[in-house]
Amino acid sequence: MSVRVQTADFDVAAALAEMRLASADIGAVVSFIGQVRDINDGDTVNTLTLEHYPQMTERMLASIEKEAQSRWNIVNSLIIHRVGTLKPLDQIVLVAVASAHRGDAFKACEFMMDYLKNQAPFWKKESTPDGERWIEAKTSDTEAQERWQQS
């Protein structure tokens, strides 16, 4: 299990290969990549700036990995999240999970992403032709996390 918070871009192929090749008991790797969109709420997005709370971020992401590991049979997991100023098409986040069988990896990957969205202390501010604005938290993201509490 590992967590990286960084300004630099990341190489998904290299990260997944490292995870996959670490152990022959891995039969499945599932990954999610989030990228910056060029339009949000009908407005053009020039840049997206991510602020975070160092120390708490790493701690929260590690606890999300640990929670996923307690719920499913996971061999390994990885979260990479970028901070700083990004532009459309830039990668923001990678969540990857390796397991013996695909079911665990699919579920754990979605779970980790839903929890990250609601609990990890990151905040997005977008720059549009009309100026800068903070992105509001979405109710749909909260609901996505709550699904996992019912099951």
């Binding site: 709370y53 969205k117 905040w123 509001e136």
Partner: peptide, 10 residues
């Protein structure tokens, strides 16, 4: 102690 708005990462 830290105060912040609801988070919006990912």
């Amino acid at each position: 102690v830290a105060f912040f708005p609801p988070v919006t990462g990912g």
